[in-house]
Amino acid sequence: MRGDQPLLQVSHVRKHYGAIQALRDINFDVYPGEVVGLVGDNGAGKSTTIRILSGVEVPDGGDVIFEGSKVSLKGPLDAQMLGVETVYQDLALALHLDVASNLFLGREELQRGWRGRFGFLNRKEMMRQAEEILVQMNVQIKDIRQKVGELSGGQRQSIAIARATSRGAKLILLDEPTAALGVQESAKVLELIKKLRSQGVAVILISHTMPHVLEVTDRIVVLRRGQVGGILTTKDTTLEEVVQYITGAKSQHSEKEGVLA
């Protein structure tokens, strides 16, 4: 999996909110098709990191390097252009619209000819492609004409992820995708993440549920007080070790620049 160029390099990224130094010095890479877990205690800086990568926040310093070149993300659309899609905690689905409309929201298929020019939707084509995307992602939904508001939390999460992939994402950012889900629904979302990897899509997964992180990730980046406390290879680590890094009992860095204890 390694060997090729990293898809994403985060280098010395810093961000503060007023007096709070949310990110002190963040460094890590993500390779194509790799699932990287981003873990850490509350307030460690996970969501802030994601917001910077998705273009919602601008870092104070440091570089975000995508496919070898430095990028400056001014907004979510910039990130989407590059192929970075974020599935937000609140999912950003329109509950009154059906599955197909949600999958194609903002880039609807139009009919050919004059009808297309008047903005007439090509519902048939959208339904066909929606069906295809869902089958490909192994998402089970009885009827894609169902309104998203009538679906379960897991199905919604799956649709949000499927939408991100179907837009040609190379990197998908997931902020606690299983937080609100039951056991079975979580399992489905984890399957979906494995599916993404098999299709060569890279994923950054934020989660507080360590078994989930250990199950699907290739590597784990542990954040602690706005710094990277350690980067672990999932198959060579244990739950205990990850927790030790999270709590600061273990660290790969000699703590520089006098961090307050």
Binding site: P76, Y88, D90, L91, A92, A94, L95, L97, G106, R107
Partner: peptide, 9 residues
């Protein structure tokens, strides 16, 4: 239905 969702897409 969800103005934020519309904006983000």
């Amino acid at each position: 239905s969800n103005q934020e969702a519309a904006r983000r897409t």
